[in-house]
Amino acid sequence: MWVTQTVLKNQNKGTLMSVDQDTVRRIARLARIAVRDDELPALAGELNSILHFVEQLNEVDTKGVEPMTSAVDVTMKMRDDVVTSGNLQKEVTANAPKSEDGFYVVPRVVE
């Protein structure tokens, strides 16, 4: 079917933007996901095949087309300036892996 064919076509073609292992490392760092060096080649391959797939969009002429900003065509409602929530210290810290005296606790963050 057309989808499959396009995928195959793109996979064989090689496109402008190709993700190398350094890029995968940088992206993983940005996303705060630890990646071992031995995982990099496979990840780069997967990301490339997905990126090549989505790069089909390059053939669409979108000149002058507004990007969609929301799936519903309504005006955003606003709330009144009223305090409706408070004293949930216990609730918001109950699930915390580490908390103390109402604080969340993390390894020291140096500035």
Partner: peptide, 25 residues
């Protein structure tokens, strides 16, 4: 990772903006 990549500096217009335009179409 894909999402991080398509939003990252220099790629936003080529991927995310483009996709939202196609979404309009």
């Amino acid at each position: 990772m894909i999402g991080t990549y398509v939003l990252s500096a220099g790629y936003y217009d080529a991927y995310y903006l483009k996709a939202q335009q196609v979404r309009t179409l």
